[in-house]
Amino acid sequence: MTDELLHATVSVRGVIIDPRGRNLVLQRATDGEWELPGGRLAPREPVCRGLRREITEETGISVEIYTPVATNAWVNDNEEGRFAAHYKCYTSQRNVDISDEHVDSAWMLPERACRVLNEPQTAAVRTVSNRLATGQPADQSLSQD
């Protein structure tokens, strides 16, 4: 067993797909980097409820949440533990109302999204894109909580 365990803040992000197969990405106000919508869970907050809350706060859209597609863990520059889970999500909405945390949003084809996102988020987008391209069976929607 490991002597030192990771104590981490948990983040959830959505790989949001529109009917045309594009992914929603947001540009952060703090550093101009692009990211998938999402954020940190509150203590004891159910995962789907937290993801839905974060997406609504950041974009004003509603989504249907499906399976987790990728996870990653790291220690940030402040030596704080982080853990992220990425979920496949669908929406039929196109109009995005970004929060003050972001300066821009874009619906991008997966190939383009992968060019602007960091590696863990790119891995999540690629996983979803590959599953769609290979015609894997449709996922079941997760709980509304």
Score class of each variant (00 low, 15 high):
140 Q>H: 03
1 M>F: 12
44 R>I: 10
107 W>F: 02
31 D>P: 05
8 A>D: 09
114 C>Q: 14
11 S>Y: 15
17 I>H: 02
84 A>E: 14
58 E>V: 08
42 A>D: 14
72 N>L: 07
22 R>C: 03
16 I>M: 00
87 Y>C: 04
9 T>Y: 15
100 D>A: 15
83 F>C: 09
3 D>A: 11
89 C>D: 00
29 A>Q: 06
72 N>W: 10
137 P>S: 07
127 T>C: 10
30 T>Q: 09
107 W>H: 03
68 P>G: 05
81 G>Q: 06
76 N>Y: 11
32 G>N: 10
85 A>S: 14
124 A>D: 02
54 E>R: 01
74 W>T: 11
141 S>R: 09
97 D>M: 09
89 C>T: 04
96 V>F: 03
65 I>A: 00
27 Q>A: 06
110 P>L: 05
79 E>N: 14
81 G>M: 10
36 L>Y: 05
67 T>S: 01
120 P>M: 13
61 I>H: 01
106 A>R: 08
123 A>I: 08
2 T>E: 15
50 G>C: 11
108 M>K: 08
90 Y>D: 06
93 Q>R: 07
28 R>M: 04
4 E>F: 14
39 G>K: 04
54 E>L: 04
8 A>R: 05
21 G>D: 10
128 V>A: 06
115 R>L: 15
125 V>P: 13
113 A>C: 08
40 R>S: 15
98 I>N: 06
7 H>C: 13
72 N>H: 13
51 L>F: 07
111 E>R: 15
51 L>D: 01
77 D>L: 12
91 T>R: 01
19 P>N: 11
103 V>M: 07
133 A>D: 13
66 Y>C: 04
128 V>P: 00
76 N>S: 08
44 R>D: 15
35 E>F: 03
49 R>T: 01
144 Q>R: 12
56 T>H: 04
74 W>R: 08
43 P>N: 10
72 N>V: 12
87 Y>L: 06
109 L>T: 09
121 Q>K: 09
22 R>W: 04
66 Y>L: 00
62 S>E: 11
21 G>M: 09
100 D>P: 07
56 T>E: 05
127 T>H: 10
8 A>S: 14
95 N>M: 07
126 R>H: 11
76 N>R: 07
95 N>W: 05
112 R>K: 14
6 L>F: 14
99 S>F: 03
81 G>T: 09
58 E>F: 06
13 R>E: 03
38 G>C: 07
67 T>H: 02
31 D>W: 06
59 T>W: 06
79 E>H: 13
113 A>W: 00
108 M>E: 08
110 P>D: 07
121 Q>W: 03
29 A>W: 08
104 D>Y: 05
90 Y>V: 00
9 T>K: 15
122 T>Q: 15
70 A>R: 04
54 E>V: 05
129 S>H: 04
126 R>I: 11
137 P>T: 01
15 V>P: 13
80 E>Y: 14
121 Q>M: 10
7 H>Y: 14
83 F>V: 15
1 M>N: 12
12 V>S: 09
104 D>G: 10
140 Q>C: 06
58 E>L: 06
45 E>T: 05
143 S>Q: 12
28 R>N: 03
23 N>A: 04
20 R>M: 09
119 E>Y: 09
70 A>F: 02
84 A>N: 13
135 G>K: 10
62 S>A: 13
2 T>R: 14
136 Q>G: 12
76 N>C: 09
8 A>Y: 13
27 Q>W: 04
144 Q>G: 15
